[in-house]
């Protein structure tokens, strides 16, 4: 082991001397010169060793910084992906909420205006029957009251004409009793709709949307839009169909 180490040192010093200007005249090199030479080179080697240590420390710092930077890049990338995906899902969720059938219903449903005639402005009608009271309440926007009056009339077995049945359905839709409204509107449609034939189609479609019967609503709206160029709320029907097609 000692011999091996000695050989390494000798090899080093030999190669060192080859580089030295004295190498040209090695034959004149005495022990004193050699000692001086090796002393100089020792210091040089010590200096190199110190500089290498500095560079080693710089290298380690640099690699550590690069690693930190790489880690930060990954974190930022993950955050960006997370934000991107989250944002996409959020937008999708907002979009789907906006165009949910119930929301379309809310955007388009308005109770059909009362055609009930009042002789003196807000005064009570001359006909004070329960159906008249129901129609008056409806005209005043008192849909709950109108509905109660319609219910009493129904319980009393009073016959409703087609407009009264239509308004009965309207008052039911206004207080969110949509299923029952659908029954009435459907029966009116089957009978041809009477004076509110076109309105019945529109409101029945909306009622289907409210109860999430989207296919029935689409089918009815599509058939109407395709078969007529002028229809009650045709423009709105097209809009609703477009919004439904986005879902």
């Amino acid at each position: 082991m000692i011999e091996k180490k000695r050989n390494i040192i000798i090899r080093y010093l030999k190669s060192l001397l080859e580089t030295h200007e004295h190498a040209k005249s090695q034959h004149s090199l005495n022990e004193e010169d050699l000692a001086d030479l090796i002393t100089d080179e020792s210091i040089r080697s010590l200096g190199r060793s110190e500089l290498r240590q500095k560079m080693h420390a710089i290298h380690n710092d640099m690699i550590a910084r690069e690693k930190r930077r790489d880690r930060l890049k990954w974190i930022l990338l993950l955050v960006a992906v997370f934000i991107g995906v989250g944002g996409f899902l959020l937008i999708k969720s907002i979009g789907s909420k906006t165009d949910a059938p119930a929301n379309i219903y809310a955007a388009y449903f308005e109770p059909y205006p009362s055609l009930f005639e009042q002789k003196n402005g807000n005064e009570a009608p001359v006909d004070s029957s329960i159906l008249s009271q129901a129609m008056k309440a409806y005209a005043n926007g008192q849909y709950k009251l109108a509905n109660e009056a319609f219910q009493i009339a129904e319980n009393q077995g009073i016959d409703f004409n087609q407009p009264q049945r239509f308004y009965r359905a309207m008052s039911l839709m206004s207080i969110n009793q949509t299923e029952k409204a659908i029954e009435i509107l459907l029966s009116l449609k089957n009978e041809g709709g009477g004076p509110f034939e076109e309105q019945v189609v529109w409101f029945l479609s909306l009622a289907y949307l409210k109860t999430n019967q989207v296919d029935k609503a689409k089918q009815m709206l599509r058939a109407t839009v395709d078969s007529t160029v002028s229809h009650f709320n045709r423009k709105e029907m097209v809009e609703v169909l477009e919004r439904l097609s986005l879902n």
Partner: peptide, 20 residues
Amino acid sequence: LLPKDQLTRAEENAFVKLIL
């Protein structure tokens, strides 16, 4: 490159350790 620029690190390290 001068030969002194190409001294191997192993040889130099052994020498430096001896001195150090």
